[in-house]
Design a protein around this nucleic acid. Structure first.
Length: 574
DNA sequence: GCCGTTTTCGGCCCGACTGTTTTCAGTCG
């Protein structure tokens, strides 16, 4: 079967987890994790590389052994070593690594001494207060485990938008190859560009329904067929994601698309509005009595209701219907409006590519400027840099700016905001930079009051430009730290600071609500990828989508500005 | 298990925090 990079990456990660629980050689474990990361970040598919006869062992972190293993996986669809480990450690062991406070050692202990092999058993054991009996584990850890499992369950079955979109695109391409399709669109929360989605909804107009449905359930990544009918089928993919495919008539396509795109709250308001005009609205169209008066296209539906077309990203019943009525909908930011990326890492710290490669990657995307913002020394694990290294980097960038054509590099850094609100590097070096991204990476568990004070104090520093990933959350993995966003935004406005919208699909931080708050308070946003490889530069599209959900226009986003205008607003502060 | 060599094997990011201890193991990023 054709090998998906994400599948290989997942298999290697799980292997690493299980090896770690077993207490295997830590360097072998790291090797698997490195390889997982390399494959995940690859810009082309390992399948294609194998077909072309390219050597996989030329990739960083992949030697002859892992090359052989990847080829085996491509051949059999299975990773024998992982299967073996799973036989040895049955149950959910790898999944339990996601429980906060539980690492390999404790898991091993819990497994061996209490016989726990699944998440359910773990929860029950914790609730029965049996964890606290183990050496080195107490009441607090036990409570933390229960809380963490509860959070894990909340996000279970939801996927970050990047994963859902990749799956949807692959599936749609596959369906199109079968022919006979007149129209095909993604609907649901994925079309509204929500940061996480539970399932994928696809609508289609097709000549041969039966053939289409057969093709759909025969997709190679289908793990289980949940239902198969003439107009609707559902399947579960290997990744655990559910996909619903619906066949609708051409004259109803717009109405169906609108109905299945939602949100529910938006649809309720739309139907209410229809009722007040004597119109009935359902997934088949807009009806006056028995007569269909609209429904072929979505815009026909909105038009019939006296509304401007509302982009899917705004359909949350957060004022978009009122705005559409008055002709006040924002002209939403487009990916093409973005003229530079202001936050990324190179192999000087924890990135994969060199400075020059990243800069050229940005130039290839048509950007006018780029800021490479490496970690500062506080983030030791990522190889954060000190003043001396930063000075050298400044010289390197100045040199590269002389040589390179077609793009300008800004001197920058991602500097840590320390617990007391000071910055990790001295003002004397920071003031040599064009811009700073300032972020919190440590001491997340402060009270809201303390954390807000910490960030605001940092903002008052004249070398503070952009607040990086402002809430520190990792989607489905880590809760945001507590912070009073309104006060932060006010401080940003008062101190000429900007808010980052970190476009990494695991972060998407700020969220849509906070973005709208920023916009309403007149605080500008920088959309940045936080890329750790050239491939990650493509995350900008997820940032664009999130920005659209926050109602942002090009003028609200500083990296849509010309280099000259950007430099001017940055200097305003300094 | 990878890498870079000294081509055959030794080295492979680190610092802080937490809860549990009473000097530290385990986790986290």
């Amino acid at each position: 079967m054709r090998l998906n990079n994400n599948d290989v990456s997942r298999m290697f990660s799980e292997t690493a987890d299980l090896l770690e629980i077993k207490g295997d050689n830590p360097f072998r474990i790291r090797a698997y994790r490195n390889a997982a990361r390399t494959v995940e970040n690859l810009t082309e598919s390992v399948s294609d590389m194998i077909e072309r006869g390219e050597k996989l062992s030329k990739l960083p972190g992949i030697g002859s052994d892992l090359e052989g293993k990847i080829k085996d996986i491509a051949l059999t669809g299975k990773f024998e070593k992982l299967e073996e480990l799973k036989r040895e450690l049955p149950g959910d062991m790898s999944r339990m690594m996601n429980v906060a406070g539980l690492g390999p050692r404790r898991l091993k202990k819990i497994n061996e001494e209490l016989g726990v092999t699944t998440l359910d058993e773990l929860e029950k054991t914790a609730r029965d207060r049996r964890i606290r009996g183990l050496e080195g584990l107490g009441e607090k850890t036990e409570k933390a485990i229960i809380e963490s499992i509860e959070r894990l369950r909340e996000t279970e079955g939801t996927f970050v938008i990047a994963q859902a979109r990749e799956s949807a695109e692959e599936l749609i391409d596959y369906l199109k190859e079968g022919g006979g399709i007149k129209k095909i669109e993604v609907a649901g929360s994925l079309r509204r560009c929500r940061e996480t989605v539970g399932d994928i909804d696809i609508l289609v107009c097709a000549e041969e329904k039966n053939m289409l449905m057969r093709r759909f359930v025969g997709f190679e990544r289908v793990n289980k067929v949940i239902s198969k009918g003439e107009t609707r089928s559902s399947v579960l993919l290997n990744s655990g994601m559910q996909v619903d495919l619906r066949v609708v008539a051409e004259e109803s396509f717009g109405a169906a698309l609108s109905y299945f795109t939602g949100s529910k709250e938006h649809n309720i308001q739309i139907r209410k509005r229809g009722l007040s005009r004597g119109l009935k609205i359902n997934e088949y169209g807009v009806f006056k009595g028995d007569e269909r008066v609209a429904g072929k296209s979505e815009s026909s539906v909105y038009r019939r209701l006296g509304l401007d077309y509302i982009p899917p990203e705004l359909r949350e019943n957060r004022g978009e219907i009122e705005a559409a009525e008055k002709g006040n909908l924002p002209e939403l930011l487009k990916t093409g409006d973005i003229r530079g990326d202001l936050h990324m890492h190179t192999n000087l710290t924890d990135g994969q590519n060199t400075l020059e490669e990243m800069v050229k990657g940005c130039r290839d995307r048509g950007y006018d400027y780029v800021a490479v913002s490496e970690h500062s020394r506080q983030v030791a694990i990522a190889g954060g840099i000190d003043e001396e290294t930063l000075e050298k980097r400044i010289e390197e960038i100045n040199r590269l700016n002389e040589e390179i054509e077609g793009i300008h590099i800004l001197n920058s850094i991602e500097v840590d905001i320390m617990a007391d609100g000071t910055l990790d590097l001295s003002d004397s070096v920071l003031e040599k930079l064009d811009l700073t991204v300032c972020s919190v990476h440590y001491k997340f568990n402060m009270t809201e009051k303390e954390m807000t004070k910490r960030i605001i104090k940092a903002m008052e520093n004249r070398n503070f430009n952009i607040l990086g990933h402002p809430t520190g959350r990792m989607l489905n993995d880590r809760q945001p730290y507590k912070v009073n966003m309104k006060e932060i935004l006010k401080a940003a406005g008062d101190n000429n600071c900007f808010m980052e919208l970190n476009a990494h699909p695991k972060r998407l931080d700020l969220n849509d609500i906070h973005l709208k708050m920023a916009r309403d308070m007149g605080v500008k946003v920088a959309i940045s990828t936080d890329a750790h490889s050239i491939k990650d530069l493509g995350y900008i599209k997820y940032g664009r989508d999130q920005a659209a959900r926050g109602w942002l226009r090009a003028e609200d986003v500083i990296n849509t500005y010309s280099l000259e205008k950007l430099m001017n607003i940055l200097r305003k502060k300094r």
